[in-house]
Amino acid sequence: MQGVVKVNSALNMRSGPGSNYGVIGTLRNNDKVEIIKEVDGWYEIRFNGKVGYASKSYITIVN
């Protein structure tokens, strides 16, 4: 499943599904990501070869 990031500035990509996990990357508005699965309001995603987590509130699913 594919998604597009929708933010005003930047979205942190984290090592786990929560804001208490470390930041491993930064996503920008309109970045395209691969959604692997949903975990407690977060998406596990793949972006630029990295796998991490981002809040699903800021990612819109596209077909």
Rank of each mutant, 00 (worst) to 15 (best):
M1G: 13
M1R: 06
M1V: 13
Q2L: 12
Q2H: 14
Q2V: 14
Q2A: 12
Q2R: 07
G3T: 03
G3L: 03
V4N: 06
V4M: 09
V4H: 07
K6C: 06
K6N: 14
K6R: 08
K6F: 05
V7I: 14
V7A: 11
V7R: 06
N8P: 11
N8V: 14
S9I: 10
A10M: 13
A10E: 13
L11H: 07
L11T: 08
N12W: 08
N12D: 15
M13T: 03
M13W: 09
M13A: 06
M13R: 00
R14A: 04
S15C: 05
S15K: 09
S15D: 15
S15P: 01
G16I: 01
G16R: 03
G16L: 02
G16W: 02
P17E: 01
P17N: 02
P17T: 02
P17M: 03
G18W: 01
G18A: 05
S19I: 14
S19V: 13
S19H: 15
S19F: 14
S19K: 10
N20T: 08
N20L: 08
Y21A: 04
V23F: 04
V23L: 07
I24C: 04
I24H: 03
G25F: 08
G25M: 11
G25Q: 11
G25H: 11
G25K: 07
T26I: 15
T26C: 06
T26F: 11
L27T: 02
R28S: 15
R28H: 13
R28T: 11
R28P: 03
N29E: 11
N29G: 08
D31V: 06
D31E: 11
D31K: 03
K32R: 10
K32Y: 14
V33E: 00
I35F: 04
I35L: 06
I35A: 02
I36H: 06
I36P: 01
D40E: 11
W42I: 01
Y43P: 00
Y43R: 01
E44Q: 09
E44C: 05
E44I: 06
E44A: 08
I45E: 00
I45V: 12
I45M: 06
R46Q: 14
R46V: 15
F47A: 09
N48W: 11
N48P: 02
G49R: 09
G49P: 03
K50G: 08
K50P: 02
K50E: 12
V51Q: 09
G52Q: 01
G52C: 03
G52S: 03
Y53N: 01
Y53W: 13
Y53A: 01
Y53H: 03
S55F: 10
K56N: 08
K56H: 07
K56S: 10
Y58K: 07
Y58P: 03
I59R: 00
I59T: 02
T60L: 14
T60N: 13
I61R: 08
I61L: 12
V62A: 09
V62C: 05
N63W: 02
